[in-house]
Each structure stands twice: as C-alpha cells, then as structure tokens.
C-alpha cells in the first residue's frame, strides 16, 4: 500500500476521462467496460491510499478532505456510469475529480482537524464533506440540464455519441442535490458552532466560519425560494441555482485557503516557537504533502 501514490489513481481517472472523451469521436464495444475498469482501479487505489493515510496520526487535514471529496465523487461516477452507460457523465464529473486531486496535491500541508477526534467533530467534518460533494453533483446535473435544454430549445440534433440524460432526470437530481446539500451543510455548520460553544467561544469573525455560514444561508434561501416560488422548483431556474451554489462553494473553498484562519487544520507555516516534535511532525507532513 505504501507504493500507492496520488499519481496512481489520478492517472487511472485521467485514462477513464480520456475514454469518456473518445465517445465523441468513435464507437467502441469495449470502451464502457474499460472506463469502469480504469475508474474502479483508481477508486480501489485511492481507497487503499486513504485508508493508509487516515490511520496516520496527522491525518484528516485539508489534503485528505479534498481527496475524500474526490473519492465520493468517483463512487457517484461509478454508480451513475453503471446504471446509465449511455450518458457521458464522466466528461462532467471526472474533471472535477482531477481538479480536487490536483488541489490536494498542490495544497500546502496542514495538520489534521482536531475536531475529528470527537463525535460531534466527526459529524461536523463528514456533514460538510458530504454537503460539498452533493453541491458538486448538483452542479454537474445542472450543467447537463442546461446543455440539454438549450439544445432542445434550439432544435439542434442530438449527438449520437454524446447522449445526455433526459431533462426530467437531470432536474430530479438537481432538485434533490439542493435540498440534501442544504441539510448536510446545516448539520455541518451547526455542529461546528456547537463544538465551539462547548469551549465557550464561537469564532464568528473567522473566514471559514462565516464563509460556510454564507454558503448555508445561500442554500437556505434557495430552498425557501423553491418552496415559495413554484416555477423555481424545476426547469432552468433550479439548474442556474445549482451553478450559483457551485460559485459560492468555490468562493468558500478559496477563503479557507487564502485568508488566515483560526480554524483547526489551517496552520500552513511552522511557528518559530513550535516544539521540536511538532516541527518534525509538520516538516515530515509537508514533505509528504507533495508526494501524497
């Protein structure tokens, strides 16, 4: 397992993506099987890699968070490709997976989230992680909806080699993703507040806290909008809302990396007064971060 690197599974996903893209150019009887084999091989390698990493003492930082998000997306890709082999879902999902892995590869090393040690912390981390991936899946289905809808409106020919799912399917997934992501982010944010409240101080001014709060607020507004305004429950409006949610998510993720924060796991430099053991630990982690 120690020989598995990010490059191993990223390469598998890149091959699966190349196979997905080749749909646009020629027909092949074995491509579907090859795509699933490469994606599944990458998924297996990534699973082993994550298991090995998460058992380490400094596990659970931003790098792992991004890798876990990519891992969940690949699981969703495998599921969708297995049940909808005709649809080129990978062309939309796999670039996001590779972007997440790339981000994890390039991110500066951080120490693991300490909150993960408690049950509430685990709920907090997992809910935010799942909420984020559900937003990403919603973005993909919203994008597919908009492309299909635009094509049908303009009466352009369906491309035999690029068969998108029906509008109904894309709309159903998009609508569900908005509700599920709002609930998960709500659980994630409120459990985070609860953890901090236990220690007597909630860092309201912290960019990660208010950024996540803003994202939650946006999703809550979207949900209320859907409930109050019936036309927003379907059609292009809901697809646009998922695209906007994606923009919000990217802003929050950028905030977490660019603005100094007290949020656990956000230490990017080794303090001069850090203990020797801590220094060794972080240096070792930073050294491994790039090769993760």
């Amino acid at each position: 397992m120690s020989n598995i690197s990010v490059v191993c599974f990223a390469s598998s996903y890149a091959v699966a993506l190349a196979l997905e893209i080749s749909r646009l150019f020629f027909r092949s009887g074995i491509r579907g099987a090859l795509m699933i084999i490469f994606a599944a091989a990458g998924f297996l390698a990534q699973t082993l890699f994550l298991v090995a990493r998460l058992t380490e003492s400094n596990a659970g930082g931003w790098v792992d968070w991004y890798l876990l998000a990519a891992w969940i997306l690949v699981a969703a890709y495998l599921y969708l490709t297995f049940y909808h082999p005709q649809n080129p879902i990978g062309i939309f999902i796999l670039p996001i997976v590779l972007a997440l892995i790339g981000a994890a590869y390039l991110l500066p090393a951080t120490r693991g989230f300490t909150v993960g040690a408690s049950a509430w912390g685990l709920v907090h981390g997992l809910a935010l992680l799942l909420g984020t991936t559900v937003i990403l899946i919603g973005f993909v289905s919203g994008l597919m909806y908009l492309i299909q809808s635009s094509r049908l409106k303009q009466k352009r020919a369906a491309w035999a080699r690029f068969r998108l799912p029906s509008l109904e399917w894309a709309e159903k997934i998009t609508g569900r993703c908005i509700v599920i992501s709002a609930v998960l982010l709500g659980v994630g944010v409120f459990s985070g507040i609860a953890i901090n409240a236990q220690s007597g101080k909630v860092p309201w001014t912290d960019p990660i806290v208010w950024g996540s709060g803003l994202l939650l607020l946006w999703l809550a507004v979207v949900m209320v909008f859907n409930m109050v305004y019936r036309p927003a429950r379907g059609g292009r409006k809901i697809a646009y809302l998922t695209l906007a949610s994606m923009v919000f998510l990217l802003l929050v993720l950028a905030l977490t990396q660019l603005i100094p924060s007290e949020h656990p796991g956000r230490i990017t430099t080794i303090a001069p007064n850090a203990s020797t053991a801590m220094r060794d630990h972080l240096e070792q982690y930073q050294g491994g971060g790039g090769a993760a």
Partner: peptide, 25 residues
C-alpha cells in the same frame, strides 16, 4: 452497425426520440 438505431418516421421520432430526451419515462 447502427443502421437500425435511428428512427425515421415522424411519429416514431416524435415519441421515441424527442419525448424521451425530455422525460425519463
């Protein structure tokens, strides 16, 4: 070959191809 796959009568194209791109079922 995919010579049989594409429909060529107006009602068949309308129902089996177009409506299926909008509705799942």
């Amino acid at each position: 070959t995919s010579i049989h796959q594409r429909r060529t009568s107006v009602p068949a194209v309308a129902i089996a191809e177009l409506s299926k791109q909008i509705f799942e079922r």
